[in-house]
Write a protein that binds this DNA or RNA. Structure first.
Lengths: 110, 110
DNA sequence: GCGGTTGCTACAATTTCCGTAGCAACATCG
DNA sequence: CGATGTTGCTACGGAAATTGTAGCAACCGC
């Protein structure tokens, strides 16, 4: 069991509970960025996420629980897992990465 | 030894070599986001990074090697590790996270 | 020479993650 | 009613990643 990311709990590698450290801790955990990314176009089921990402259900579930505790993702029984309002805000901050990654890849292969 | 993030090498959990997947893979590895963040205000020495982050030198070195292979970080023997031009671009995409994380933390504690 | 800093490595112990199998709850269809 | 399918999720043994500690070789100033 991994420590939850919540106010008062210091992030791994940081004695302070500064929000940016908590956020970097959460987003730096394996598959978390991918999970948020996979939900960018709407809700997905547990197994859909599992298939799309290719990770074990154990860790998918653990990461989803962390994202739910962080109020970035929620489970709607009718449609599946989806981003909350907060999660959608976060996703929008990440969208520029898509275009930038193309530029970056060209520089790498050059 | 972890697979390097380079064109042609598919990212973990993705059969395609799409740049965004490579990038999310790289950034999702433990301590990578923290490392980029710690270099935001200028170069730092290996041991400075180690102290600031609190991770083992083994993994600090491995992640720095990956970031160097990705041309996001470089080592200047006179001043230490620093962001490349590409790395600085990436950092700028992440800077809005700082302000947003404060808002997020308030929502969590509410 | 001597002490300090540099980046970095070795290696055993611990933690995390994977891969597979499967469960309980619920819905749907006959 | 039973049978079948889908849902989210868990157990558990093996594999992989990470930690913590110690220390090395190269370099610089004195």
């Amino acid at each position: 069991m991994v420590k939850p990311v919540l106010p008062g709990h210091p992030a791994r590698g940081s004695k302070s509970g500064r929000p940016i450290m908590l956020l970097l801790d959460l987003l730096g955990r394996r598959w978390v960025l991918r999970l948020v990314w996979e939900l960018r176009e709407g809700p997905k089921r547990f197994r859909e996420l599992q298939m799309a990402i290719g990770a074990s259900p154990t860790i998918i579930n653990e990461r989803l629980a962390e994202l739910r505790a962080a109020k970035l993702v929620e489970l709607d029984t009718a449609s599946g897992y989806r981003l909350t309002a907060l999660g959608t805000e976060l996703l929008h901050l990440f969208l520029p990465l898509h275009a930038w990654s193309e530029k970056w890849a060209k520089r790498l292969s050059a």
